[in-house]
Design a protein around this nucleic acid. Structure first.
Lengths: 118, 118
DNA sequence: TCGATATTTCCATATTTATCGAATCGTCGG
DNA sequence: CCGACGATTCGATAAATATGGAAATATCGA
């Protein structure tokens, strides 16, 4: 169903989805929550947003393929779609480096520094 | 002057800057152009945009720190600010992985696949 | 200094995006 | 079946963004 090569249009949708205070915050919470995810209501509480506003934002993230929703009883649980995030980063680095050995690619591929510092 | 740790607000500015058809296209052209960059007029021609519109978009990219401008005679030459792009990607992966060994980090750090395919 | 060129700034307008209450839909417990 | 709960959809309004012509700014060549 997925694994579609990210087009420019798709990339813009993903960037737009992330380029908003509440959505970026929501996405980060979901990433931290891991595979278990979080119910919409919990996100609304933590972000201090009315349910309808949050629902609007979650729809954007879902439309961009950055989050996935599953119903669990009355709640709807959202999880971050890491592969989609992965694809976005891949597209950005690809288009940034375009096969050339630029420092963006280099910096992105240095596990020692990136991991060791933490 | 730069090398500021990217805040969430700064990240949103960068994402917003990139999350627009013409700006993403302009940025990609600048990346391809490399350190020599391209004059504003050339970008306007290639993108088929009126000068004033392009100027507006370039201002956004510059404000986000993603491009730099230098005057050369009558033209103003724009270049992609790779370090800023680098920082953006770093922020996204950091916040995506948060120190955890998630597959985004893994996928991002596989030079063989990413480079070999091209 | 004058005219031509390259770009930006200004301004009005059009389009898109965000916000949130109210109404609606699906699910559960009794 | 009914009331409550969790969430989305709808709709109206507010705010932010994009667009492009006209005017202003800066630089160059003669």
């Amino acid at each position: 169903m997925n694994a579609v090569p990210p087009t420019a249009a798709h990339t813009i949708r993903a960037l737009s989805a992330l380029a908003q205070e509440h959505r970026l915050a929501a996405f980060r919470l979901l990433v931290q929550a891991g595979p278990d995810g979080l119910p919409a209501g919990e996100l609304a509480t933590r972000l201090g947003l009315p349910a309808s506003s949050l629902s609007f934002h979650l729809a954007q993230l879902a439309n961009a393929g950055l989050v996935e929703a599953r119903r669990q009883s009355r709640s709807i649980i959202y999880t971050a779609a890491l592969p989609a995030m992965n694809a976005l980063l891949g597209y950005l680095t690809e288009n940034c480096c375009g096969g050339l050995p630029c420092d963006v690619a280099a910096a992105c591929c240095e596990p020692e520094e990136a991991r060791g510092a933490a």
